[in-house]
């Protein structure tokens, strides 16, 4: 049985880990999880991304979520962000495509141009 103090310490440690990960991350993957994203399948996209990242032991990537981006017809949307680079937004993502983004865009730095919806 853990005490409340233990739990607080654990929580702080986890927060710190995420903060370090954020600061040192080379890639940031953002999954749009508004009502539109969720209805279109963003949940299994998120699950596939995390599964692929942990399978490949990728440690320089952080995965976050955001609300509706205003392009509901293109959901599920996934954005790949890198410091000082244009943001690549992929549209109509399936779990299979999400795995490819991790393998090709994150793993080999190759944009999957067929599925890019927007660059900004």
């Amino acid at each position: 049985m853990k005490t409340l103090a233990d739990l607080r310490a654990i929580k702080e440690k986890a927060k710190l880990e995420m903060a370090t990960r954020e600061q040192t991350a080379k890639y940031r993957l953002v999954v749009a999880m508004g009502t539109c994203g969720i209805a279109a399948g963003a949940r299994s996209v998120m699950t596939a991304i995390i599964d692929e990242i942990s399978k490949r032991g990728i440690s320089d990537t952080v995965v976050t979520q955001t609300g509706c981006l205003g392009y509901c017809d293109q959901e599920p949307l996934v954005q790949v962000m890198q410091p000082d680079k244009t943001v690549i937004t992929y549209g109509k993502i399936t779990p299979e495509l999400a795995r490819r983004i991790v393998a090709e865009h994150i793993g080999r730095d190759q944009v999957i141009s067929d599925h890019v919806f927007m660059q900004s």
């Binding site: 739990l7 310490a9 654990i10 929580k11 440690k13 986890a14 880990e17 995420m18 942990s54 440690s59």
Partner: peptide
């Protein structure tokens, strides 16, 4: 959800390793 944080601390895992 503290179960997840507890596993991370015990095994020195990252968040993503703890998900599965």
């Amino acid at each position: 959800s503290y179960w997840v944080l507890g596993r991370m601390a015990e095994n020195d895992w990252s968040l993503y390793q703890t998900i599965a």
